[in-house]
Design a binder for these strands. Structure first.
Lengths: 196, 196
DNA sequence: GTCTATACTGTGATAGAC
DNA sequence: GTCTATCACAGTATAGAC
């Protein structure tokens, strides 16, 4: 079968093109904001005509969906590594985990907006893209349980606290550390509250 | 001057039309989401043609701007009343203030999204519309100072904490009370932390 | 002054040639 | 798979009737 590309080769090329499109989408989202992302801008950056994108993604929301999945997969990876390196001592371990999440979330505004869905009303992540988000939450739940914090209420409070700090940092002091500086104190406050 | 409407009457009619347009905009925003608000929907609800809106607002963002101002003016009003009715005792007073804000923010998802600007990249509130937002923040700052909490860091932490609970409530349990139930404990946690 | 009618630009999306 | 051509509909803006 000389001259006939193998099935693997075709699949590889297809996957590479998808990667190019997603990289372009991330670049545009960071430059212009996630809500200002347009298929024309993405296509131009890739060197395609706009309709050609539809050969690789069935809609703009499908691109958002893939980006959503990647964002949370990256978070899951960072958290897994972070927990593996966490100190044994409960309070220090908790702080380490919280800072790992905070740093990942704050590092990319567009990505964080996507992760928490402040995009468009009609975008709903698919079950597949949502999976790493659930896994990340589960990871946090298990870590808290391992240091004796096992009530749903305390887990929810932890998530709300860290989420509030992330949002405040990105909204009121993007690129700065006004809220990052509060993280240690906030974790101590939380640890005291849950009796750690 | 029979049959000639007075200047006041004209101004009243104009103001009434603006009110109708804003009410329609709020209704559409609540039904379809603040980002899905379109001038066509607003005009249809008022019984106008779309371009006629431009006789009363110079752009869509001008409508957003007026809504932004109204949202924060309402918050300022609620907070002013809340603080006037707040218990003397510091912790109870703090809880009262936090709950007043939480309840106002959680009562209307579209309004809250507007207040925290998760709308479009090009919308920036005018100084006039922003004023009640600043006044509300100042009110909170003064209340905290009155009970001995006067550091910027503690104020920021308070704002981030309540904001995180509001966002979590609206995002994860809209219409429910999963995070509303955590408010008392969260305020106790914060009060302990700042040495109240 | 306010409305109706209409046109312009930019967006996501589809059809069909190659 | 990619392209050209085109659609439907968004926000915006102007002209002209009343």
């Amino acid at each position: 079968m000389l001259g006939t590309p193998s099935r693997n080769r075709i699949a590889e090329r297809r996957e590479a093109t998808r990667r190019e499109i997603l990289d372009a989408a991330w670049a545009v989202a960071r430059e212009k904001g996630i809500t200002a992302l347009t298929l024309r801008d993405v296509a131009e950056r890739v060197g395609m005509q706009t309709p050609s994108l539809y050969s690789h993604f069935e809609s703009k929301n499908a691109i958002y969906d893939a980006m959503f999945g990647e964002a949370w997969a990256g978070c899951l990876e960072a958290m897994t590594a972070g927990i593996a390196n966490a100190p044994e001592e409960p309070r220090a371990g908790l702080l380490h985990m919280m800072r790992t999440y905070f740093d990942y979330a704050v590092a990319d505004q567009a990505r964080n907006q996507l992760m928490n869905i402040r995009i468009s009303a009609d975008f709903e992540p698919s079950a597949e893209a949502y999976a790493p988000s659930i896994a990340t939450y589960e990871l946090g739940r298990q870590h808290l349980a391992s240091i004796g914090v096992d009530s749903d209420a305390d887990l929810d409070l932890c998530a709300a606290l860290i989420g509030g700090l992330v949002d405040a940092q990105l909204a009121n002091d993007p690129g700065g550390d006004r809220y990052a500086r509060l993280l240690d104190g906030a974790v101590q406050m939380y640890a005291d509250h849950v009796g750690l």
